[in-house]
Every structure is written in C-alpha cells, then in structure tokens.
Write a protein that binds this DNA or RNA. Structure first.
Length: 175
DNA sequence: CGGATTTGACCAGCGC
DNA sequence: GCGCTGGTCAAATCCG
C-alpha cells in the first residue's frame, strides 16, 4: 500500500464553494477511514451549506462501481479506485471552486458525449487526488465532476472561510 | 521566467 | 490478436 487515504475528511469534501446546485451522484467507498468528530462537524457543516439535496430526482448511477478502467503507465496497475464520488452540478462554469488547487493534466473527447472530459490533479505535493470534469451532452448546463481519492491535507481556503464560523459556533454551543 | 495549460502520442484494459 | 476507448505523459505553448 502506498499510504493512501487519510484523515482530513473535510479535505475530501469536494463540494463546490461557488454558488451552484450540486447533486451527489455516486459514492463508491471501499473502507473509508472515518473522520474524528470535530472533522465530522466541519464536514456536515459543509454539506449542509453547499449541497442541494434533490430527492426523487434522477439520481442515476453513472459511475462504474468496479472502475475497471483505471490504470497508469508502466508497471503500476490499479484494479479499482479507492474512492470515487461524482457530482452533478448545474453551473455555467466548468471549473468549480471547491477550495483546492488543481492542475490540469489532460483532456479527452469521450464517446457518447460532445463535450471533452478534463483531467485534474491536486497540486499539493503529497496529495494524489484526481478529478474529472465533463459536461453532460444531454444538458449543457450540467457539469459532472468526479473526484477520486482523499486529500491528505487540509483545504486552506476552506479553513479560512470556516474557522471564524466554527469558532462562533463553538462559543455559542457552550450556552 | 516559472508555473499552468494545451494537445498529440502513448499505453493498457476490454470486447469482439 | 486487433481495434477501440479512456487515462496519462510530456513537450510545446501560454500567461501572469
């Protein structure tokens, strides 16, 4: 093992910070190492703030559970991905601000879609998280963002935004 | 000038 | 075995 997946659950919360409605499509988790409670607080805060739950709507499963198509060059083979989460987001922008910094490393046109798929990697040195971004061919206004892996570092931008809120919450909860 | 993006080539898995 | 497809690499290019 390469010491994948650890702590920072809030770090792995890929919910876009920019205003747009997001729908969690799929989560395929093997055995997530779960967050400590205070991290959990952050995570729930986050999700409460940014995810528009959409019960009843077509929460179709589009991500291949077995992820049989992930591999990398030379020698290294991954049979399945450790963790994968896909979001449907209604947004005019392709690139959603989720608080992390991403570097694009590829773009491919895929079958059955008029829009190309973009591949991004987290720029943090030790972080191996990837994400794919693709627009729905059916609905131009919907962006599908697929996250793969868990950030092993906190999200600076998120912490910046949330820490004053959290402090206030903690203060208030004492009464 | 350094870091990010673009883009064509390359590679591996899968289905036939 | 071969072709198709998706994922990644890396050189070239762009941009602040």
């Amino acid at each position: 093992m390469e010491g994948e997946n650890f702590p920072y659950f809030f770090g792995s919360s890929p919910f876009p910070l920019s205003g747009s409605s997001t729908n969690v499509l799929e989560q395929s988790m093997q055995n997530p190492s779960f967050p400590s409670s205070d991290q959990m607080d952050l995570a729930s805060l986050l999700s409460a703030g940014s995810i528009e739950q959409n019960p009843g709507s077509t929460a179709s499963r589009e991500v291949d559970q077995n992820g049989s198509r992930s591999k990398s060059r030379f020698g290294k083979k991954k049979k399945y991905v450790p963790q994968r989460v896909a979001f449907h987001t209604r947004s005019e922008e392709d690139i959603l601000d989720d608080g992390y910094k991403w570097r694009k490393y590829g773009q491919k046109s895929v079958k059955n879609s008029v829009h190309p798929r973009s591949y991004y990697r987290c720029t943090h040195h030790t972080c191996n998280v990837k994400k794919q971004i693709q627009r729905l061919s059916k609905d131009n206004s919907v962006v599908v963002t697929t996250y793969e892996g868990i950030h092993n570092h906190p999200c600076e931008k998120l912490m910046e935004t949330l820490s004053p809120l959290l402090k206030q919450l903690q203060f208030l909860s004492r009464f």
